[in-house]
């Protein structure tokens, strides 16, 4: 050991250096946030909790085509459909296993009807896995909570450009009658 090193040890030079830095930082702005008291606004287009789009008449916009389930890389979407009384297609169950989702948003991209979105809500930690297995009603209420009003539409216009808005199909077709009349 050299004399210089010995002196450093005896006079606690390293400690004093550290204390000096601490003292200096006391007079600068804080970098960390005091989450959860202090929350940060997500960036536009953030991919958070899933929601099913609710139409103005209160029903889900989803027609049950199952393209979201087909494209989903983690296979966490399950759609169950059946035939209704007037032979229409009814979505009986629409389920997302949120805990398995990888937030790629392929489902949003695949949906020809803009019926599923990823909202900017991210605080949905839960105590059970069941809470993260979301059914149709829960996904619809997510839309009401996080995407209601203009926000939802703006989100689609800005970040997703689903192909349905490109369709130049005329209004008398069986399926698009509904969609077009909705506007």
């Amino acid at each position: 050991m050299t004399i210089k090193g010995l002196a450093k040890k005896i006079f606690l030079i390293e400690i004093l250096k550290g204390m000096a830095l601490t003292l200096k930082m006391m007079f600068t702005h804080a970098v960390t946030r005091q989450y959860p008291e202090e929350k940060r606004e997500p960036f536009p287009g953030f991919r958070g909790l899933h929601a099913l789009v609710r139409k103005e008449d209160g029903t889900a916009r989803c027609v049950g085509c199952g393209l979201c389930a087909a494209i989903c890389p983690s296979q966490c979407i399950h759609v169950y459909t059946s035939e209704g009384v007037s032979h229409e297609k009814i979505v009986d169950r629409y389920e997302i296993e949120v805990s398995r989702c990888v937030y790629c948003a392929f489902c949003v991209e695949a949906c020809p009807f803009r019926a599923v979105v990823l909202t900017d809500h991210f605080e949905y930690a839960a105590y059970t896995r069941d809470d993260l297995y979301m059914g149709k009603e829960k996904l619809l209420s997510n839309w009401d909570r996080f995407m209601a009003g203009k926000k939802g539409n703006e989100y689609f216009e800005k970040f997703w450009h689903p192909l349905s808005s490109d369709f130049s199909a005329s209004g008398n077709q069986a399926i698009f009658k509904k969609i077009n009349s909705e506007g």
């Binding site: 027609v63 049950g64 085509c65 297609k89 077709q173 399926i175 698009f176």
Partner: peptide, 11 residues
């Protein structure tokens, strides 16, 4: 031909 593939079971 209608473009109702999302409804059509044949899709």
């Amino acid at each position: 031909h209608p473009l109702d593939c999302p409804y059509c079971d044949k899709a």
